[in-house]
């Protein structure tokens, strides 16, 4: 999708391979813009990662896609349906997992799933709930109240409820926030299995390692979509020159580097320091003295996704802050 940006866009309704196609989405709350002029396209069967800091507009964007919020301006389609006028149709084919657990805590697992199955008019709600319980491995807990489950199980149950009506598109809003690493890994395995079966998944997160698990990512900060593409494309498009520095006195060095012209980002990574600049030549010039005479070991390195995001964020802060 990012490769043919320059090519004229085909209308999404004519192209069943494009699941989300929106242009110029804008939304303000109380005069404060939360999402600004956001355009994106998501192809069928992809896991599309939606990254950005807290409060960047991820949730608002997702809510506009499934008809829970009306954009102030902009237009587009979701599964070929108009997001402004056909939200009833969109709801039938989209599974939306909210950031906060929103199943009924005073209903059992089975009752929650049966409720969802009935609302989506599944042919045999009881059987559908039984199948979902078996798939989730919750046979022994089917009669347990949803409110009594641990965080990891709640999240699995919420995902189970979302995919019960076999939607074509899954919208997951920070599904792994506050979930332990093992449960997170299982969750991502499940998402990949679903995408393999043809489901399109848009997942928001602020974990960098999860970005690497997505087919494509978009980075959003201060309501603006700053970059999108595969991880490799995003890193390459940032054109960040980076050095990895190891050795003694890194804290003092970081302090000195920050004040140098041509050094745009200094970030400690474990025992090393990442030093990046948008202009390679200026970075080289600014750090030559330190590289040649300092006690530390300098090595040209690859910018990581996190370097790129931190740089993008500081750049957009410069523009809007």
């Amino acid at each position: 999708m990012t490769m043919d940006v320059a090519a004229p866009r085909r209308p999404a309704a004519a192209d069943p391979e494009i699941v989300i196609d929106v242009e110029g989405l804008t939304k303000s709350f109380g005069g404060r813009p939360v999402v600004k002029n956001l355009s994106m396209q998501v192809r069928r069967g992809l896991i599309y990662g939606f990254l950005g800091p807290n409060g960047s507009g991820k949730t608002t964007t997702i809510r506009m896609l499934c008809g829970l919020l009306t954009p102030d301006s902009g237009h587009g389609t979701c599964l070929g349906y108009d997001i402004l006028t056909q939200s009833a149709e969109i709801k039938r084919h989209v599974g939306y997992m909210t950031q906060k657990f929103s199943l009924y805590t005073d209903l059992s697992i089975r009752e929650n799933l049966e409720f969802v199955a009935r609302v989506y008019n599944l042919a045999d709600p009881r059987q559908a709930a039984r199948d979902a319980i078996r798939r989730l491995g919750l046979e022994n807990r089917a009669e347990q109240l949803a409110g009594e489950l641990s965080g990891g199980w709640k999240q699995r149950l919420a995902l189970g409820a979302c995919i019960l009506p076999e939607p074509q598109l899954l919208l997951l809003d920070e599904p792994t926030a506050g979930v332990d690493p093992k449960a997170r890994r299982d969750f991502w395995d499940e998402i990949h299995a679903l995408a393999h079966e043809g489901m399109t998944v848009l997942v928001s997160t602020h974990y960098m390692d999860e970005a690497e698990r997505c087919h494509e990512i978009a980075y959003i900060a201060y309501g603006e979509l700053l970059t999108q593409g595969t991880v490799a494309e995003v890193v390459a498009n940032a054109h960040l020159a980076t050095y990895t520095v190891t050795g003694p006195g890194l804290a003092d060095l970081a302090e000195r580097l920050r004040s140098l012209d041509g050094v745009d980002m200094v970030a400690p990574f474990g025992m090393a320091l990442h030093v990046s600049g948008r202009d390679g030549a200026r970075l080289d010039a600014a750090t030559r003295e330190l590289r040649e005479h300092g006690p530390q070991h300098w090595e040209p390195g690859e910018a990581t996704l996190e370097d790129v995001f931190i740089d993008l964020m500081s750049r957009s802060k410069d523009n809007f802050g």
């Binding site: 599964l79 149709e89 039938r92 084919h93 009924y104 005073d106 209903l107 009752e111 049966e114 409720f115 009935r118 609302v119 989506y120 008019n121 599944l122 042919a123 709600p125 074509q168």
Partner: peptide
């Protein structure tokens, strides 16, 4: 797939089923 879903979810019987979903849920709560 979509037209299947549309057929399943249209009409009075489908509406009655969704009403039933809310009714049963409230009754249990």
């Amino acid at each position: 797939g979509i037209s299947d879903v549309d057929r399943r979810t249209r009409g009075f019987r489908a509406s009655l089923m969704r009403f039933g979903a809310a009714f049963i849920k409230e009754l249990i709560q």
